[in-house]
Design a protein around this nucleic acid. Structure first.
Lengths: 344, 344
DNA sequence: TTTGGCACTCGCGTGTTCAGAGTGCCAGGA
DNA sequence: TCCTGGCACTCTGAACACGCGAGTGCCAAA
C-alpha cells in the first residue's frame, strides 16, 4: 500500500548485497547461516531465510537445487550494481602505478597496448581497448607522396596519433607541382577539422585545377574520402585471455563460446558500440545481445583525449565478478588514457 | 650386430605409426587388440604386445597406468615425424580455397590477418603469423614531411608493404628545400637496398649539406637508422585460440600456461625465431624451451616474398596432433602467402 | 619367431551409504 | 505483526565396495 508495490525493504536489500559479496568471494552458493555469521545483520538465520524466500520470489536470487545456498541471478546483480554498490575508487598507490605505467608509452600503438595489459592485470579479467576511432578525431596533416609517375601514397595523420596510409593509382602521370598544390589546398582546408566534415570542405577542390589535372585530383580525393569514411576498419586490442581459466567449474562449456566471441572483432566492436559515451555501462549476463557471452558481464566506458570520448574500453568477466572493483579500475584507466592522449 | 644397435625392425615401426595414428584420432590409449583390428598388420595381438614392450623399453611409447593402452611419448612423435610420416599435400579444392581466400587481401595487415585466420581454420588449432620483418626487406621509399617548423614526419615503406612512421623533433626550423634535397638524396641511395645496408650508404650524407643544416640532417638520419634497426618491434598476429578448448581432458591445467604464453609476444617471437629459415620445423612437447608449452607442439616455417624468407608462421597445438595434415597446411599456406607478397 | 592361452592388474562406472548443509514451516514470544 | 528457535525433510557430495572389461605379461607350443 504505502510506497511502491513489490518494494523490498532495507533489510532484504542488505541481504541481497551480502549474498552478492559472499558469492563473488567464495564462488559457492551462500546459505542463511553463513550469511549471518559473516555479516552482522543483527537478525537470526531464520529471518534471513524468510527474506531469501522473498528475494527468490522476486527473481533476484535462486537455488541451483533444493538444499543448496542461493546465488544471485542476472537481475540480482543488476539491482546490486544499480542501487547497492558504489564504484570503488583506486587507492593512491594504484593510481600512481597506473599513471607511471602509461606514461612510458611512446606512440599510439604503445598506449593502447599498455592500457589493455594494465586493465587486464588490475581486474584479473579480459580487457578490451578500442583504438581511437577516426570519425571523432580531427585531421592533423594529410600528406601526398609520388612514389611512381602514376602512383601516389596518401598519408592521413590524426590528432589522436593515428596514421592511415593508402596507395592511389592515378589515371595518368602526376606532376610534382600539381601534387604540391593539391597538398597545400587540402591541408589548408582540412587541418584541425573533424574527419567526417572533411569531404564537404574539399568538394569544390577540383574546380581550382586545370581541366587536364582534374581526373587525378578527383581520384586522390575519392581515396581520401574512402579512408575518412572507413569506420569499419576500427581496430581492437585484447589482453588477459589467460584469466578466463579462473572462470568457473564447468569449464570448457563456458569458456569456448567466450573465446570464440573474443576472436570476432565485429562482435567486440558491437559490444563496445553499445556503451553509452560518457557514463559507464555494465551489461550483465543475458542482457548481453551476443549469445556466447550470456554468462559474462561487460563493464565498459568511453575515453577521450579531450572532454568527449573517441573510443571505448572495457573488461569482460564472469557475471560473478567484483563489480565495484572492476568499475573502479575501468574508470581510473579510462581517465588516465584520456589524459595521456590529450598530452601527446 | 648387423646394422645399428637398437635398430627397430620394420614391423615395430609400423606398430608405432599405427599407435600414433590411432591415438591422434581417438585421444585414447590404444591397446594391442584394437590395433590389429583397425590396421591390418598381419600379425596377432600377442605379437604386437611384444613389439609394444620393446617400443616402451626404448621410450617411444608409455602406459599411463598398468592395464591401459599405450600412448606415444614425445620421443615417439619425434620418430614418427622424422621417419614414419609424409607431409600430406593439400587437395586441389583446398588449394583453390586458400588461393582464393588470400587473393582478396587489400594491404599487408589484411594479408596477415587473412593468413592467420585461414591457418587456424585449416588446422583447427592456434595459428601464429609474424609480420614480415624489417631486416630482410628492402626500401621502397622513404618520405619526409614537415608537419611544423621543427617537426618532421619520417615514413618508411618497404617492399613487403610494411609502413613505419616516426616523428622527428629537429634542433631548429627546417627549410623545405633542404628537406626536399635530403629526401631526394636518401631515396637515390637507399631505394631497393636491404634495410640493414642503408645506414652504411647514408653515412656521408651530412657532408653534402651546408654547415647550418647538418644538425637537422643528422637528427633525421639518426631517427631513420633507429627505425631501420628496430627489429624488436616485430609484430605477431594470432588466431584460433578457441581451438584450445579441444585440447584435452585435464583442461584448465593444460590450457592456462598456454594462454599465458600466447599473450607474451616475446615468447612467441622467440619460438618462431628458432625455426630454420627454409625447412619446416617441428618442436614436440618438451623439446620446446618454454615451459608452459611443454605439452604442445609447434609446426613452423619461414615464408617470403621471393626465394628467401622474410618472416615465419606456424601452428601451435597439442602434442597429440595430426602432424602430416598440419604440416601440409602450414607448408601450403606459407607458399601462397609468399606468392601474394611477391605479386603485390 | 610367432601365436594362443591364461592368470593377473587396475581403472572406471555403478550402486549404496552417510554426514552435513541448507531449507521450509510452524508455533511461541516480543 | 514480525522475529526466532526448533524440527523434520531434502539433496549433494564424499567415501566405499564391487564387478566388469580392457589390457597386459608370460609361457609353452607350433
Amino acid at each position: 500500500m504505502a510506497g511502491e508495490v513489490r518494494q523490498l525493504d532495507e533489510r532484504k536489500l542488505a541481504v541481497l548485497r551480502a549474498i552478492v559479496q559472499d558469492y563473488v568471494g567464495t564462488e559457492e552458493p551462500v546459505g542463511s547461516k553463513a550469511l549471518v555469521e559473516r555479516h552482522n545483520l543483527g537478525v537470526s538465520p531464520a529471518t534471513v531465510r524468510n527474506d531469501m524466500a522473498a528475494l527468490e520470489e522476486e527473481g533476484y536470487i535462486h537455488q541451483p537445487h533444493t538444499s543448496a545456498g542461493r546465488i544471485p541471478t542476472d537481475k540480482g546483480y543488476r539491482l546490486f550494481v544499480d542501487k547497492l554498490a558504489e564504484i570503488k575508487p583506486m587507492s593512491a598507490p594504484e593510481r600512481r602505478a597506473i599513471r607511471h605505467f602509461l606514461d612510458g608509452a611512446v606512440d599510439l600503438d604503445d598506449v593502447v597496448a599498455r592500457t589493455v595489459r594494465l586493465l587486464a592485470q588490475l581486474t584479473r579479467q579480459v580487457a578490451v581497448v578500442q583504438y581511437p576511432s577516426l570519425s571523432r578525431s580531427t585531421v592533423r596533416h594529410i600528406e601526398l607522396v609520388a612514389l611512381a609517375p602514376a602512383k601516389v601514397m596518401l598519408v592521413l595523420i590524426t590528432n589522436t596519433g593515428r596514421v592511415e596510409q593508402r596507395m592511389v593509382d592515378c589515371p595518368g602521370a602526376v606532376g610534382e607541382t600539381v601534387l604540391a598544390d593539391l597538398r597545400a589546398r587540402i591541408n589548408a582546408r582540412a587541418a584541425g577539422r573533424r574527419l567526417p566534415e572533411v569531404p564537404g570542405l574539399l568538394e569544390e577542390l577540383p574546380a581550382h585545377f586545370e581541366q587536364a589535372d582534374r581526373p587525378t585530383v578527383s581520384t586522390v580525393l575519392a581515396t581520401l574520402f574512402e579512408t575518412l569514411a572507413e569506420q569499419n576498419e576500427e581496430r581492437i586490442m585484447l589482453a588477459g585471455t589467460a584469466n578466463l581459466t579462473r572462470f568457473g567449474h564447468d569449464f570448457p562449456l563456458t569458456i569456448q563460446p567466450v573465446l570464440e566471441a573474443l576472436e570476432e572483432q565485429v562482435v567486440l566492436l558491437r559490444l563496445l558500440g553499445e556503451t553509452a559515451d560518457a557514463a559507464m555501462t555494465v551489461r550483465i549476463g543475458r542482457e548481453n545481445a551476443y549469445e556466447g557471452l550470456n554468462s559474462t558481464s561487460i563493464v565498459s566506458v568511453g575515453y577521450g583525449s579531450g572532454d568527449e570520448s573517441v573510443a571505448k574500453l572495457g573488461v569482460i568477466g564472469p557475471t560473478r565478478m567484483d563489480y565495484p572493483g572492476t568499475m573502479g579500475a575501468v574508470r581510473a584507466v579510462a581517465r588516465y588514457v584520456g589524459q595521456i592522449l590529450a598530452e601527446s
